[in-house]
């Protein structure tokens, strides 16, 4: 970074991070190989700014790095005790709002939520679990939807709409009742034109949208985040 032109870098925790015009702080940070924890952001899609896990401090302001335009000379704090604690609490809230049972979840080891929780040293839920009653939609012959694990990142919504051109998914409801909707008369996945080859079928960062009958085919120890922590893993689909 030290060789970068001073005109197109910002400062992240004392490091210079180069950026291109129009890039956000999170996009530039990720491209530079540095890590700011995040869940609803994906390099292939426009920022959503909903999970708030990528919150950074710029002067007196706390802002999501995924929506913050990079600017020359910007001083960004991310790896601080304050922000680590904030992210920890956000993640704990996400865990208790859904039903996340890592021990028997086939996404364990490949799950961005689990890996991010490890990255912020989360060791327990802290808050009382909600244990919401959420459905499992197994109607599709090739894809399982387990909504117990949904964190409302909307990546499937964006992928289906922007890449697949189908709009199979949408977020409905308000506040704590916000939930993922399936756009079909029955509300079931089998009654949509969703296909296993859709971009939305492989975008879910947690264990909601899963190919059927694969399960634990990949052994423990050989999964994506078994190999290296999420802070060192490459960005992309889980």
């Amino acid at each position: 970074m030290s060789s970068a032109d001073a005109a197109d870098v910002f400062h992240l925790d004392g490091h210079d991070v180069p950026f291109t015009t129009g890039e956000t702080v999170l996009a530039a940070t990720s491209r530079a190989g540095r890590y700011i924890p995040h869940l609803c952001w994906h390099p292939d899609f426009a920022p959503h700014g909903s999970c708030r896990v990528c919150t950074v401090r710029v002067g007196a302001r706390l802002v999501p790095a995924c929506t913050l335009p990079a600017a020359t000379g910007l001083v960004v704090e991310s790896d601080t005790a304050e922000l680590r604690h904030l992210r920890l609490r956000l993640l704990q809230l996400l865990f208790v709002e859904g039903n996340h049972f890592c021990p028997s979840c086939e996404k364990s080891g490949d799950c961005q939520l689990q890996a991010t929780a490890y990255a912020v040293d989360m060791t327990g839920p802290h808050f009382e679990e909600f244990y919401p009653a959420r459905p499992v939609d197994a109607s599709h012959p090739d894809i399982l939807l387990d909504l117990n694990r949904c964190i409302l990142c909307s990546l499937c919504v964006r992928a289906s709409r922007e890449v697949d051109g189908k709009s199979v998914f949408a977020l409905g409801g308000h506040g704590i009742d916000t939930h993922l909707l399936i756009d079909s008369p029955s509300g079931r996945l089998v009654d949509t034109d969703f296909a296993p080859t859709d971009r939305a079928a492989s975008i879910c960062p947690v264990g909601v949208i899963l190919p059927k009958r694969r399960g634990f085919a990949v052994p423990i120890g050989e999964r994506r985040f078994d190999q290296q922590p999420i802070s060192a893993a490459e960005e992309g689909d889980p």
């Binding site: 086939e106 499992v136 009958r213 399960g215």
Partner: peptide
């Protein structure tokens, strides 16, 4: 009951 069958050998050992 209600869980996908491929999850069961891992879940039930708990």
């Amino acid at each position: 009951e209600g869980r996908p069958y491929w999850e069961v050998p891992v879940m039930v050992q708990r």
